[in-house]
Design a protein around this nucleic acid. Sequence first.
DNA 1: GATGAAACCTTCACCCC
DNA 2: GGGGTGAAGGTTTCATC
Lengths: 154, 154
Amino acid sequence: MTTSLDTIDHKILKELLADARLTHQELSERIGLSPSPCARRIRKLEADGYITGYSARIDEAAMGFGVSIFVSVKLDQQVDNKLVTFEQELTKCPEVVDCWLMTGSFDYLLRVAVRDLNEYESFLTRRLTKIRGVASIESSIPIRRVKYQPARLS
Amino acid sequence: MTTSLDTIDHKILKELLADARLTHQELSERIGLSPSPCARRIRKLEADGYITGYSARIDEAAMGFGVSIFVSVKLDQQVDNKLVTFEQELTKCPEVVDCWLMTGSFDYLLRVAVRDLNEYESFLTRRLTKIRGVASIESSIPIRRVKYQPARLS
DNA sequence: GATGAAACCTTCACCCC
DNA sequence: GGGGTGAAGGTTTCATC
């Protein structure tokens, strides 16, 4: 099923990462191939799981959610049902855009996107601290995103 | 230029966040509109900066970069040229997929995507610690991504 | 916001190396 | 195995209502 990727596949991924709405024709011109093998390769990259979908890039600030906060969360116990409860509740929160289960001194690292610090306060007091098992919370405020790639390619 | 978004615009953004390659026809069926006003609204959302582009979602693990590490970096001084140097060097590193300038006890928060911990070690020793002004580094290893949305919509 | 026609793109069978 | 060609069908676009 899955063979390893060659140079052309890498070029296709790079172009589609930059612009997913490229037509097969334009893509084929950029990588120096005709449209039909191009389309075949894209289908294979999708079937093999290299490409999992396509997303619009949406400007969070334009949407009114220009403030991001990183939140480190510690639970009182790392037992399975506490983790499950926390994750279920958290998945429901639209403010939480990214969440990782961590090793080390904290259990979860979250990125929360909010309108302003008032909205963050109500998220903290009404939602996050209300989840059973949450022992402590530490907030870190970023100034600016310096670099962002949705995924590493090379 | 920018008027606020109505329900239909929100539906369009939601659908394009989930699948950026939807045709205008299919999108119009899902939101209950005909294709051409649908296309007009998309162009307006792009022109007004709500949609900044379209990306393929690429599976980092499939690409061989299945290990993510969060790295907190502190510089010896927060003077402007140290920040500029650090950011320039960092932008060149393919391993660094996400980087934020932070307030508080650390200066930068990075997410690094690597093949394995050996590659991470060589990134640390050969690249990150070689950048002038880096005073200290703390690595945190995630187990699993619990939730991920490229952007908050509501 | 809808309609319809022209231009464009995708797709597939088929051919080639 | 992979890349190219051309024709059929579908999609986008634009003027128009």
